[in-house]
């Protein structure tokens, strides 16, 4: 589905992405883990074309997307939610989802319909339902709880009906209970939509619970990959990452 081949990126002197290769299987759910500053978000930024690639190539379904523009890559089926919520503060949940739906169909150039009466309303409702935002459907984004803002960020990505969904710390800033609710939601989403999911997460219990496949990033490089079982017993990972947390 998504294939990354020997990808590298440096900022000044820092190698933020170091010769990363990986391939996500269709309809799989995968986790990307690693300490702060390991280069997880940078990898997402490279995949989505938000920042330029130094070296390497990226493919989606065998289409080479290396060096395409962010908006072009989005239209080829990659959507993301952000680590720091990235939403439209004065728009309601409903209107936010609708602009995302219309953006995907190039419908925002339309000047002759009324946005409020647009036939896309039904679809927006179903995206809100899928994201668990039915109750706050008419709330202005800036007035939503932190958790709902995170959900809206994901809903915007879902509205694009992506083949590959990238989630950057969907549970960031949440308490334990809210966290598991979010994870539940993501798992359901993934089962329902048959997307390929790659998520970044710091909570190991969550990662081991729902990921089929885990990539461990350290100082820009992938130091291990495998099933939860394999990762749990990987010496490198225990030494570099998991061990550190237990002390």
């Amino acid at each position: 589905m998504l294939k990354i081949d020997k990808l590298s990126k440096s900022f000044g002197g820092i190698l933020a992405t170091d010769n990363v290769s990986l391939e996500l299987k269709p309809n799989s759910i995968n986790a990307l883990i690693g300490p702060n500053g390991a280069g997880k978000t940078t990898l997402f930024n490279l995949i989505t074309g938000k920042i330029d690639i130094d070296e390497g190539q990226i493919f989606i379904d065998n289409t080479n997307i290396t060096n395409l523009k962010e908006s072009e890559i989005t239209h080829l089926g990659i959507a993301r939610a952000f680590q720091i919520t990235n939403i439209f503060s004065t728009l309601s949940v409903q209107d936010s989802i609708k602009v995302a739906l219309l953006a995907k169909q190039h419908g925002l150039n339309n000047m002759w319909n009324r946005f409020k009466a647009h036939s896309i309303n039904k679809e927006a409702e179903s995206i809100a339902k899928l994201s668990g935002l039915t109750k706050s459907y008419n709330t202005i984004s800036s007035a939503l709880s932190h958790g709902d803002q995170k959900l809206l960020d994901i809903a915007l990505a879902l509205a694009l009906k992506p083949k590959v969904l990238l989630l950057d710390e969907p549970t960031a800033g949440m308490g334990p209970e809210e966290r598991w609710k979010m994870i539940d939601r993501i798992q359901k989403l993934w089962k329902k939509t048959k997307m390929t999911v790659l998520f970044i997460e710091h909570d190991m219990d969550i990662v081991f619970d729902i990921a089929q496949n885990i990539y461990v990033l350290q100082q820009g490089a992938i130091i291990a990959e495998g099933t939860p079982k394999e990762i749990k017993s990987n010496k490198k990972v225990i030494k570099a990452y998991l061990g550190g947390g237990k002390k």
Partner: peptide, 10 residues
């Protein structure tokens, strides 16, 4: 509202 996000919506 947010000039950064639209590109990520295509």
């Amino acid at each position: 509202d947010n000039s950064e996000r639209p590109a990520a919506l295509g």
